[in-house]
C-alpha cells in the first residue's frame, strides 16, 4: 500500500441495523459529528415492526482507516445489531428518489417534460406554470436530472438520500 492509497478519500455506503429505541438516531449522528466523520447521505426507517428494527443507510467518505473506524465505532453502540459495508462486502444496489419542482412556461415546459421522459421521471403534480417530477435511480442519475432542470426553472428539490441493499439471496 503506497502512501497515496492510504490517504485516498473513499466513498462507502454502510447499512446499519439498529433496535428502534428512543435516541438511537441521535447516537449514530452524534458519533459522526463527535468524531468528525462525514455524512453525505443518511436515511432511516423502521423495517421490522415486530422486532422493532430500523435500518439506517449512511453514505460516508474518508480514508480507508477512517472508514474502518466508522464501522468499528458504529458497532460499539449498544443498540446496533449489525454493520455492513455495502461498498466492499459484496455487490449491492442503491437507489435514491427525488421530488423536483420546476416552474416555467412555453418551450421550457416542453423541454422539461422531454428530459423527464428520458430519465423516466413521472409528473406527480402539475399546475399551469409548474411540474413536480419524481425521479428514481442512483444518486448520480438524480444529480444529472436536477442539473438539467436548472436552466428550465428549477424551484425546489427534496431528496430521500440513498437506500441500498446487497445483491443476491442473503439478508443483512
Amino acid at each position: 500500500m503506497t502512501n497515496n492509497d492510504k490517504d485516498d478519500i473513499l466513498r462507502h455506503t454502510v447499512s446499519v441495523l439498529v433496535d428502534n429505541e428512543s435516541g438511537v438516531l441521535a447516537r449514530v449522528i452524534g458519533l459522526f459529528s463527535g468524531r468528525g466523520y462525514n455524512i453525505e447521505s443518511l436515511t432511516v426507517a423502521e423495517t421490522d415492526h415486530v422486532e422493532n428494527l430500523s435500518k439506517i443507510t449512511i453514505v460516508t467518505s474518508g480514508t480507508r482507516q477512517v472508514i474502518e473506524q466508522i464501522k468499528a465505532q458504529l458497532d460499539r453502540l449498544v443498540p446496533v445489531r449489525k454493520v455492513v459495508d455495502l461498498t466492499i462486502d459484496g455487490p449491492s444496489v442503491e437507489r435514491e428518489m427525488a421530488l423536483v419542482k420546476v416552474a416555467g412556461e412555453g418551450e421550457h415546459r416542453v423541454e422539461a417534460l422531454r428530459i423527464a421522459d428520458i430519465f423516466r421521471a413521472r409528473v406527480i403534480d402539475s399546475s399551469n406554470s409548474s411540474f413536480v417530477f419524481e425521479v428514481f435511480g442512483k444518486a448520480g442519475k438524480v444529480d444529472a436530472f436536477i442539473k438539467l432542470m436548472e436552466p428550465l426553472g428549477l424551484v425546489d428539490v427534496s431528496r430521500t438520500g440513498v437506500v441500498a441493499i446487497s445483491r443476491g439471496a442473503e439478508g443483512l
Binding site: Q65, E68, Q69, A72, Q73, D75, R76
Partner: peptide, 8 residues
C-alpha cells in the same frame, strides 16, 4: 477487547 481501538 474494543475492536474500535484496533488501527485507530
Amino acid at each position: 477487547i474494543d475492536p474500535s481501538s484496533i488501527n485507530k
